[in-house]
Amino acid sequence: MATVPLESVLILAAILFVMGLVGVLIRRNIVFVLLSIEVMFNACGLAFVTAGWYLSRPAGQAMYFFILTAAAAEVAVGLGLILHMRRAFGTLDTDKIDQMKG
């Protein structure tokens, strides 16, 4: 079985993370922001699993389960927030809800 070099997997993870971050920064629709955060989670997960494989330890994969759990919880809370936001402000645009500015 051909082994993929560690660097390329980490670079892939970094690319995924930056894609997610850019998504969070440029998208104004909160649903897409949430999706981009999901991508960032998975980039982290990939990096953990790769590191665990490289060091021959199960900790990396165990960590991925934690991330998965956190992501599931985040989606549950996030979707609730989205619903509430829609009801309270009538919009999903994050730039429109800036009442908290100092």
């Binding site: 969070v24 994050t94 809800i97 800036d98 908290m100 500015k101 100092g102």
Partner: peptide
């Protein structure tokens, strides 16, 4: 300081 708290999440 309050300039930085502009309410824009992004």
């Amino acid at each position: 300081l309050s300039l930085s708290v502009n309410g824009k999440v992004r």
